[in-house]
Simulated scan of single mutants.
Amino acid sequence: MNASATNAPADADAPVAMQVAAVQMVSTPDVGENLNAAAELIARAADDGAELVALPEYFCFMGRADHEKVAIREHDGDGPIQDFLSGQALRHRVYLVGGTLPLVCPDPDRVFNSSMVYGPDGTRIARYDKIHLFNFRRGDESYDEALSIRPGGEPVTFEAPLGRVGLSTCYDLRFPELYRALGDVHLILVPAAFTYTTGKAHWETLLRARAIENQCYVLAPAQGGRHPNGRSTWGHAMLVDPWGEVLDVVPEGPGLAAGTVDPQRLAEVRAALPALRHRVM
């Protein structure tokens, strides 16, 4: 497992409560427009007291065709989108999770779909390349992320004052074995761009299931609305607690789903129902 402890609390065994926010956007094919929209929402979240802010999948770019993301790919550690994320984290002194952005991969016609995490000092502390690639065909709807994305292969966590945080992206949500591979985490992040069809059917159910079975918080930023490329995303960015209760949700359009990740609440749930200790496989 690839994990980074940069900016971790001095006593990793004593996590503290943190205010968190999931950003919901309706991204477009214009990178500059999207970064400006993200900046406004990050500032709102920070002004409201958020200490960790997470952007949705494809926050920086929702092209009119899958292959268009290849044209704006960046090299790891170098590029305007990564500079934006680092600068915003430093400016607002927050942990900032850049939902996903396209990074160079060994295949010339594909990219990694990567989540990047920056600490309050602007330093990058984690990178996760989306492992499971969405493929859906029904009627006129057809998606195949593998045409333009190369899958990652390693689960990733990082340390924050609230405890260990596990990274995942969108379609990963359907694969519980990934979350078990993260180990003992206090918070799972799921930046997503769920389609309207699959989101309406499964999004909340899956988020609550991951929270319940891992007895941790789940923060899920989302794309939510009708995009210029004609795609409709489900939205419903939300924060779910370890008992599976939805603490906040944004149904549609730009906004913030925010709340507190409270280690005491997490400990209470795990003490009352010690399911993690009862695992035998």
Results as ranks from 00 to 15, higher is better:
Ala201Asp: 15
Asp48Ser: 15
Cys105Gly: 12
Ser148Phe: 07
Ala8Tyr: 08
Val190Ser: 15
Ser115Phe: 04
Ala258Leu: 09
Gln88Glu: 08
Asn36Arg: 11
Glu159Leu: 07
Val23Arg: 01
Asp121Trp: 02
Asp241Gln: 02
Ala39Phe: 14
Pro263Trp: 01
Gly235Cys: 10
Leu273Arg: 10
Arg231Phe: 13
Arg44Ser: 14
Val104Cys: 06
Ser148Glu: 03
Tyr118Val: 10
Arg279Lys: 10
Phe194Asn: 12
Asp241Thr: 06
Ile72Asn: 00
Phe59Asn: 12
Glu213Asn: 08
Ala209Cys: 12
Leu55Asn: 13
Gly259Asp: 13
Leu173Pro: 11
Arg91Leu: 12
Gly253Ile: 00
Ala275Gln: 12
Ala50Gly: 04
Gly49Arg: 10
Gly49Val: 12
Leu207Glu: 09
Asp241Pro: 04
Leu167Asn: 08
Thr28Val: 08
Gly122Thr: 11
Ala39Leu: 07
Asp140Glu: 10
Gly77Asp: 12
Val240Ile: 11
Asp241Phe: 02
His202Ser: 14
Asp78Thr: 07
Asp172Ala: 00
Leu239Phe: 04
Glu68Gly: 05
Asp48Pro: 15
Gly77Lys: 05
Ala21Leu: 03
Arg231Ile: 05
His278Arg: 14
Thr123Met: 11
Ala43Thr: 14
Ala192Ser: 14
Arg277Asn: 14
Glu159Cys: 08
Ala22Asp: 10
Ile149Met: 12
Ser232Ile: 12
Ile188Leu: 05
Tyr58Arg: 12
Ala271Glu: 14
Ala38Asp: 15
Leu103Gln: 05
Gly163Pro: 02
Gln88His: 08
Ala192Pro: 15
Gly244Leu: 01
Glu33Met: 04
Leu103His: 10
Glu51Val: 04
Ala38Trp: 12
Pro108Leu: 01
Gln215Pro: 08
Leu167Glu: 01
Ala89Trp: 03
Leu247Met: 06
Phe61Ser: 02
Leu133Arg: 01
